[in-house]
Amino acid sequence: MLSSVFEQFGKESPVTVMAQVLMSRIFAPERIDSLFTKYATVQYQQDLLFSSQVDLMSLVVCGIQKSVHSAYKAKAVDLSVSTTALYKKLCGIELGVSQGLLRETARDLIELVQLMGGEQASLLPGYRLKIVDGTCLAGTDHRLNAIRNFAASALPGKAIVVLEQCSKLVTDIFPIEDGHSQERSLFDSVLEQVKSQDLWCGDRNFCTAKFLFTIKEKKAFFVIRQHGGLGFRELSELKHLGSTQTGELFEQKVEFSYDGKTIEVRRVVLKLFVATRDKEWEIAILTNLPYAVPANKITQIYRNRWSLENLFQTVTENFNGEIQTLAYPKAALFSFSMALVTYNILATLRGALGSVHGVDKIEAGLSDFYLGPSNK
């Protein structure tokens, strides 16, 4: 009887079945608990397993339950701990555990997308395009005694997120508890993950001499918007290369120094026909890609950076990843990591559909809203 019921669901709502199978696989209790053992250094599992916390938080992130407390009440029969013990556990989840949860599940899902043939065409074959951006979690309710008398909400954390272009999956997160800290405090951790033939694309916040120099030293590449604070010396005049749909394109050679060494890069300048939302008329991009890659391709790669901005919007609209009542940084960053893992499952579903119906067709015609867990 169960097989016939499953078959009926498979025919009438295949995406629902696919989502259920993926979530069951990715959030398998044994695997999640072993992941916790691998990455945790302070916390331990006793009465409340990490897999139970993931299961409970998935209900909140997917919008099935409105809050952690309501999810706890729904699961109270299966849990042998009090709400106080639950919140204490959530507030102590180490950042390395949240990071490891995202990294390892992403690795499995990317392999699946590749096997299905659901990847998008590479913008630049031969390079692994990684789009990097930072995000600050929204302010939370005033649940802590220390902040109840302040008008501004607490910022429960900040993170740098890495998106792989071909699979459209988030492959890494670099969280930090201080929501008021600079993204650049995380750059060393990001640079540790750079590998040969990577192509890192980011906005001007990532335009520091050390960041660019280290990427080049690791035989990797960058397409980074120029920051006004990065000093450089012009080695050639701006050369006009023609017009694009958005502006006039120019290029020149420049160099800058770091740690007593000099690096020569290309500076691609797009003088816009229409100003940006920040009233800017010019976008300058620095890159160490070879000259065989034309300047218009470099601007195309940089424009693709918006796919990560769109991802943040998708997570905000379809998942409850920034829970207002979680003012504790570790708990808030854990819930955000869970939202990104759930987004990756959604992206894998898109890849599966794309492998059958065409990746471009799915990308252009299927809204994430209809794949969102709360809309199943």
Results as ranks from 00 to 15, higher is better:
I160Y: 02
I160L: 14
V162I: 09
L163D: 00
L163F: 01
L163A: 01
E164I: 04
E164N: 07
C166H: 05
T171H: 06
T171D: 07
I173V: 15
P175I: 04
E177N: 12
D178H: 10
H180V: 03
H180Y: 11
S181K: 14
S181G: 11
S181L: 08
S181T: 14
R184E: 08
S185R: 12
L186H: 02
L186I: 04
L186P: 02
L186N: 03
D188G: 12
D188P: 07
S189Q: 14
V190K: 12
E192F: 04
Q193I: 00
V194W: 04
V194M: 02
K195G: 08
S196K: 09
D198P: 06
L199A: 00
L199F: 01
C201T: 14
G202L: 08
D203M: 05
R204A: 10
R204V: 01
N205H: 12
N205W: 05
F206P: 11
F206Q: 11
F206E: 13
C207A: 03
T208M: 01
A209S: 11
A209G: 04
K210G: 04
K210E: 07
K210N: 10
F211N: 11
F211M: 10
F213L: 04
F213T: 15
T214I: 15
T214V: 15
E217G: 07
K218M: 12
K218L: 11
K219T: 03
A220F: 10
F221G: 05
F222K: 14
F222I: 10
F222P: 12
V223L: 10
R225A: 03
R225W: 08
Q226D: 10
H227D: 13
L230Q: 05
G231Y: 12
G231F: 10
G231Q: 14
F232R: 02
R233W: 09
S236R: 08
E237G: 12
L238F: 13
L238A: 13
L238K: 14
K239L: 14
H240I: 00
L241E: 13
L241I: 06
L241T: 09
L241F: 07
G242N: 03
G242H: 05
S243H: 15
S243P: 09
T244Q: 00
T244S: 05
T244W: 01
T244V: 01
Q245W: 01
Q245D: 06
Q245P: 00
T246Y: 10
G247K: 04
G247F: 07
G247D: 06
E248G: 02
E248C: 03
L249R: 02
F250Y: 15
E251P: 01
K253V: 11
V254A: 03
V254G: 03
V254E: 01
F256Y: 13
Y258Q: 15
Y258I: 09
D259H: 11
K261Y: 06
K261L: 12
T262E: 04
T262A: 05
T262S: 07
I263W: 02
E264W: 06
E264R: 15
V265E: 06
V265Q: 02
R266Y: 00
R266D: 00
R267S: 13
V268I: 15
V269H: 09
L270H: 03
K271P: 06
K271L: 06
L272R: 05
L272E: 00
L272A: 02
L272P: 03
A275E: 15
R277C: 09
K279G: 05
K279C: 11
W281L: 13
W281G: 10
E282N: 00
